[in-house]
Amino acid sequence: MQAAVYHGRHDVRIQQWPEPPPPGAREIQLEVLRASICGTDVDEFTSGPHLIPLATPHRASGHVGPLVLGHEMVGRVVAIGAGVTEFTAGEVVVPGSGVSCGMCRWCRAGRTNLCATYYTVGLHVDGGLAERVNVPARISRSVRNCPPDVAIMAQPLAVALHAVRSTSAEPGASVAVIGLGGIGSLAVAACAVRGIGTIGVDISPARLEVAARSGATVLVDASRRDAAAAIRHATGGDGADVVIETSGTPQGLATAMNAVCRGGHIRLVGLHRDPSPLDLTRLVLDEIRVSTSKVHICDQDLPEALTLLADHPDIATTAIDSVIGLADIVPEGLVRMAAGTAAGKVVVRP
């Protein structure tokens, strides 16, 4: 089969790759209908490997060496492993991205994204930027009320929902979202469906426009204005009650620190590769809470994402920049996203 295979930094090849074996116990095999490219894939392409185990076997999955990218996908069930009773051949499903054991202390507490043996499809085992893929049945959910071009946003929307949920933001709160790429714009949409207005911050006019269509009520072009000052101005000088930082940049973190109000909450979602000093004195004196958000909790966030997309398909259509073929993943997907010229998610039809 054809697949997008990661071999190293700036080395993703569209090549022949072995088809997955028959699904094992509690696995299903999907014919991939749609996949999409995540910012993490772009990060691995431009500066990795960070998460992909090219040289040393992954401690949980055991994979080592080149692998098929893609942890955001929707597919049709074509084969079913032993013990799977919840799906039938021909059914369309969306898998979550993370595989958890279901037995460790974190899984028993419902925090499956912190599983002791957690690994990610498309980063630690072969993923969905291919014609077929095997995934665990337990992380997959049936798609009944929206087409593949909408359902493809379920996994990234689940990530955004998980990030927003733990901020406890309510209508009337001031919320700033810094970084309006795929997850950032979906976080804006997740707030909008809850009746929460947001201040969207980015350096890309195109991404700012997507955020406006997603429900942002104030837009700040950080390439032209002091973003923290603009957020404070928009909140009457106090600063935002909640700042969701998705850019993963030192500039984004500095803006979050300078824009949050006393007693406010900074939610870190983007992965920060560079050292990022924090003003710990201000955090203490102003009782600012800093928390982090990792991926999603499949049982909670993925069903909610599918329900929201069925009720609000415009969330997906607004978030998608373009739909491309597998052969165009590098120039039209990874390179464009790395350059910042893609206004939203790039979806792939394998």
Rank of each mutant, 00 (worst) to 15 (best):
S166R: 15
L161E: 04
V125E: 06
R141W: 11
G102P: 02
G172F: 12
Y118N: 09
S140P: 03
Y119I: 06
V93D: 08
V135I: 12
S97N: 11
V150C: 13
G70C: 04
V94C: 12
R76L: 06
A137W: 08
V143D: 05
V125M: 06
G81Y: 12
A158C: 10
V150Y: 10
A130T: 04
A169I: 14
V92S: 06
T120W: 03
G98Q: 10
D126I: 07
V84K: 05
R76C: 05
E86I: 01
E170R: 15
N113K: 06
S100W: 11
C115P: 05
N113W: 06
V68Q: 05
G110H: 07
L123H: 12
V121T: 14
S97Y: 00
S140N: 06
C115D: 09
L67F: 03
R144P: 03
I80P: 02
A163R: 07
S168H: 14
C104V: 01
V94E: 05
M103P: 00
W106F: 09
A163L: 09
P171W: 15
S142V: 14
N134H: 12
S100P: 02
E86R: 13
P171I: 14
S140E: 07
N134A: 13
V150W: 09
G81L: 11
F87L: 06
M103G: 00
R132Y: 14
L69M: 14
P156A: 12
R132H: 12
D126V: 07
Y119K: 05
S168I: 03
T120F: 13
P95C: 09
A169P: 13
E86M: 11
H124L: 04
V133G: 09
C104L: 05
P136M: 11
V143S: 11
P147H: 08
I80K: 02
P156Y: 12
N113A: 10
L129M: 15
V99A: 01
L69E: 04
V78S: 10
C115T: 10
A160I: 12
C104S: 00
C115W: 10
G96I: 07
V77M: 01
T112A: 09
M153E: 15
